[in-house]
Design a protein around this nucleic acid. Structure first.
Lengths: 210, 210
DNA sequence: TACAAAATTAAACACTTGTTTAATTTAAAC
DNA sequence: GTTTAAATTAAACAAGTGTTTAATTTTGTA
């Protein structure tokens, strides 16, 4: 019955459609029917391929973030000045998340209520892993005497990701305020101005002495 | 038919129950039936009192944030050093939002899909207003020569609120990581450590020179 | 007490949801 | 060409949704 973890072309097609709709309407707000309609396949095919809506989401997330870990790992081993490394980390993070809004929005906002505890474990693991990498980079900067010693490292991620997500959540507001009404302008602002803002913020926090 | 905007005891009771459930399960995830069950009233009473689930949410939001504007207004007129004023602003913001998680979570996370455009207008107005007050405070600090001149003021809010929300969204992760497993500990951490982290971050950004 | 308005109720309504069934078509293997 | 498994379909299913109805109880007033 084709209920495997492998991804063929049709499964990928479905995942892409699902991602698009999830990004627009959220996970709960997107029905299997709307996915099947948009993907031009029969409703039953989704259960046939993925088993359930939940498993579909799981497949989507795994499909989308599988190589982020490796990218971060590579970065942490690069030979860069501490500040540059952090800047690059932020740039990589924001760009990556911005390219995969749909999934990350669900991961960050719609996971609170659902408590499929094995999935929670997977996410906790990912977060733990990312935190360890960041920790390594910060400690390196501290040892080189560039960063302050009293940084609460686990709170850096909320500031980095939170700034992005809050900006993104208030998309319409900032589109109006900053004249970013085309998708191109909006993305350009994120990749330039917003990323720079976050980099400045984190740098200031890391090196500023009272 | 009791479809007014005034709030009697029973309506407030319903709002409180709704807030609690919304905080736990989200707006879409909370059914009118569950509200009526928890509030120990008949399902029909909610339509009877509020008209619809949407209007119930609207009532809840207005009920919860009606006096925040005044608080901010008062703060901006206080006679404080720029840094202290910003710190107090952050403290007030975080405390206020943390006390009204349920509503703010919905306002920030569940408004993307729904586009009841008159409600959007109300929120845009609130955001605009808050931004103006922050702008006033920052400009004051710039004129006094304490803050940098090149601050992108509209991006301060995403960093302040985003940090909080991202921390809150990942509640379970940080409960584990930082040993905050009781509600008391968690709230204490927010009111002390997290607030301080945000204050440090914003201060560093505002006064740090490259 | 009698009357009218308000409050409350159980039941029904119309609709959407995710999932499953059982029949049919397509594809592959022998 | 026949057989067997996979892919695809339309239809049904069971459960849940927000809302409305119409009947009943409670309340306040004359």
């Amino acid at each position: 019955m084709m209920l495997t973890n492998e991804l063929n072309e049709k499964k990928i097609h479905i995942l892409k459609v699902a991602e698009k709709l999830f990004a627009e309407k959220g996970f709960e707000g997107t029905s299997i029917r709307s996915i099947s309609k948009e993907a031009k396949i029969n409703i039953a095919m989704i259960s046939y391929y993925f088993g359930s809506k939940e498993s579909l989401l799981e497949s989507l997330i795994l499909y989308k973030i599988s190589d982020l870990k490796q990218e971060l790992e590579n970065l942490s081993k690069e030979n860069l000045q501490p500040v540059d490394k952090v800047n690059k980390l932020i740039e990589l993070y924001i760009n990556r998340i911005n390219c995969n809004r749909g999934v990350f929005r669900i991961m960050h906002f719609e996971m609170t209520s659902k408590k499929s505890s094995d999935r929670k474990k997977v996410f906790t693991e990912i977060k733990m892993n990312n935190l360890e990498i960041i920790e390594r980079i910060i400690r390196e900067g501290q040892e080189k005497g560039v960063f302050r010693k009293d940084i609460v490292i686990p709170l850096l991620t909320p500031t980095i990701l939170g700034t992005y997500f809050n900006f993104f959540i208030n998309k319409e507001f900032y589109e109006e305020l900053l004249d970013l009404k085309t998708e191109k302008k909006f993305n350009a602002y994120i990749n330039n101005n917003l990323t720079k803002h976050i980099q400045q913020t984190i740098k200031a926090l890391l090196v500023y002495e009272n």
